[in-house]
C-alpha cells in the first residue's frame, strides 16, 4: 500500500502537482489517468523519489518514504519494479542481459537458475526469439515487454508502469494488461499504472485516480466510472468511441433494456 498526502511539485513557475492525495492499494491495479501533460509521470517519479516533491508526504506500508535517508531509500527500491515511458533499456546490453542485470546485481543465483528465471519472465510477457538482440534492433512494443520483464524479474512488492501499452497493438496491449493484473493478484503487488488507454481503464481499473492539471478530479473503479456524472471525466472518457458504446450498453443493462439479440 502506498499513501500520499498533499503532494506538490513545481518546475519553476509551472505548478505540475497541486496537492494530490490518494491511497494505492496492494493486490490491486491502481490507475492514474488523465490527458497528457496532466502530471501522471511527475507523480510516479515523485512517489519513487526520482523527483523530490516540494511538499507533502509519501508512505510505503506505514513507513514514511519522505523521512527516509538516501540509504534507506536505496534498500526500499530493491522492492520496486518500474517500467519507464520510454522503456529505458540498457542499450549496451542484449535483451537477455538487460533482464539478467538485476539478477546478477542482487541475487546469488547460479547461471542455470538465472537462465530459467529469464525464460520464465520472457515467456510471461510473450516475447520469444529476441534474447540475443540489442534494444536498437527491436520494436517499441517489444522494448516495453522487455522493460516489464526486467521490472518483474526480482518479484517486486511495488510495480510502477508508465503507459505500459502506449505504442502496442491492441492484442499485445490486452496481453500486457492481463499479465500485470495477474501478477498483481498473484504476488499481492501494489501496482500503479499511468495510462490514457480506455480499454485498460475498463479492464483493469480497480482503483482509478483521475487527474486534471495536477489535481485529483475523481476517484473510483471501472464500474463507478461508467455512471460518473463528473463532466470533465465524461468528456475524457467519451473521447473513446468504444467506451461510449460500452457505457450505453451498461446503462441499458442496468435498466433491463438490453435487446434480446445482444444478450
Amino acid at each position: 500500500m502506498i499513501e500520499f498526502k498533499n503532494l506538490k511539485k513545481s518546475f519553476g513557475e509551472k505548478v505540475v502537482l497541486d496537492g494530490v492525495s490518494h491511497t494505492m492499494e496492494s493486490g490491486k491495479t491502481n490507475l492514474i489517468i488523465g490527458t497528457s501533460g496532466s502530471g501522471k509521470t511527475v507523480l510516479q517519479k515523485c512517489l519513487v523519489g526520482l523527483f523530490e516533491p516540494d511538499e507533502g508526504e509519501i508512505i510505503y506500508d506505514g513507513k514514511s518514504f519522505t523521512d527516509m535517508t538516501q540509504e534507506e531509500r536505496t534498500i526500499l527500491r530493491r522492492e520496486i519494479g518500474m517500467l519507464f515511458q520510454g522503456s529505458a533499456l540498457f542499450d549496451s546490453m542484449t535483451v537477455e542481459e538487460n533482464i539478467k542485470f538485476p539478477l546478477n546485481m542482487f541475487t546469488k543465483d547460479t547461471g542455470s537458475q538465472k537462465r530459467k528465471r529469464i525464460n520464465e519472465v520472457l515467456d510471461r510477457v510473450n516475447l520469444k526469439d529476441a534474447n540475443k538482440k540489442f534494444p536498437s534492433e527491436i520494436s517499441g512494443g517489444m522494448k516495453k515487454r522487455v522493460g516489464i520483464a526486467r521490472a518483474i524479474v526480482l518479484n517486486p512488492k511495488y510495480l510502477f508502469c508508465d503507459e505500459p501499452n502506449s505504442g502496442l497493438d491492441p492484442v499485445t496491449s490486452m496481453v500486457i494488461d492481463k499479465l500485470i493484473k495477474d501478477l498483481t493478484i498473484e504476488y499481492n503487488i501494489t501496482t500503479i499504472i499511468n495510462t490514457h488507454d480506455m480499454n485498460s481503464v475498463m479492464e483493469i481499473g480497480d482503483n482509478i485516480l483521475y487527474m486534471v492539471q495536477g489535481k485529483k478530479e475523481w476517484t473510483g473503479n471501472s464500474k463507478d466510472i461508467i455512471f460518473s456524472d463528473n463532466k470533465q471525466l465524461n468528456e475524457f472518457i467519451f473521447a473513446s468511441q468504444f467506451l461510449q458504446d460500452a457505457k450505453n450498453m451498461r446503462m441499458m443493462e442496468a435498466k433491463g433494456e438490453v435487446p434480446e439479440e445482444v444478450k
Binding site: L50, T74, L76, I80, G86, D91, M105, F160
Partner: peptide, 17 residues
C-alpha cells in the same frame, strides 16, 4: 545518453548507487 534515455533513473530505481 544514459541520463536522457532514463537508463540512470532505471538503475537508481533498482536500488543501485
Amino acid at each position: 545518453n544514459m541520463r536522457v534515455s532514463e537508463q540512470i533513473d532505471a538503475l537508481e530505481i533498482m536500488g543501485i548507487n
